[in-house]
Computed example of a mutant assay.
Amino acid sequence: MPAHAFVDESSRGGYLLCAVVLLPADLNPARRLLRALCKPGQRRLHMKHESDGRRREILSAVSQLGIEVRIYRTKLDGRSERKARDECLRVMVQELIDQCGVDRMVVESCDQDHRDNQVIREMVLKAQAEERFVYLHSAPANEPLLWLPDIFAWAVGRGGDWKRRCGSGGIEIREIKP
């Protein structure tokens, strides 16, 4: 069954690119849950700006969704974040197409969208998936499902109890060698 992926990054002790994979039937229930977690006047969830109590509340709620989370992590070792992002993005796109059956990917928009598009297009062509894989960039305020990779990447990046709060299953961490 086709799936959708939502992608965001985190930079903590290296570079992390997080993809959250959802089936179409799970999209709207997950959006409703995320919107319900927003406080009045809050346009989006962003773990960097939440208190520890809110972080626990958010992780407790989203860990119940039973979604697939894939983290692509690499060390910077003097390399630019852009180079690390390209390496993670290449592996991620290939695996989302080949292993997860993803046919639609939404990446959090930032000042790197043009370069992202070049790397993604390269991998889509390599996988001969032009007819079955679409991708776009979106602002997190417009797509609540982009809050999920932010939440999971933040928690995994922090490690310890925060990572444990993500739930026992469904998170796969891939170490990408430079």
Rank of each mutant, 00 (worst) to 15 (best):
V119S: 06
V119Y: 03
V106I: 15
Y72D: 08
C18G: 07
V102H: 06
L76H: 08
I67L: 14
P29V: 02
A30W: 07
Q112P: 00
R82N: 09
A36C: 04
L33C: 10
D150L: 06
R132D: 08
R115T: 02
E143I: 15
E108Q: 15
R31W: 04
R35I: 08
S63Y: 03
L34R: 08
M1A: 09
L34S: 09
Y72N: 07
D52N: 15
E9N: 08
V7M: 04
E87L: 15
R70H: 13
C18V: 09
G160A: 01
S168A: 12
K83S: 14
E95P: 10
R132N: 10
A61V: 01
K39S: 12
L125W: 00
G53P: 00
P24K: 02
P2K: 14
A141T: 15
R90W: 14
R85K: 13
P40G: 13
Q64K: 10
F6G: 10
Q94L: 10
C88Q: 08
K126C: 11
L96Q: 12
D86N: 12
E143R: 09
D116A: 01
V21A: 02
G157V: 03
L145P: 01
L37P: 00
V69K: 07
E68K: 11
A127Q: 14
E131C: 07
L136H: 08
P149T: 04
G14M: 12
L76A: 04
G101R: 09
A141W: 04
R54H: 00
E172C: 08
L22A: 12
A153K: 02
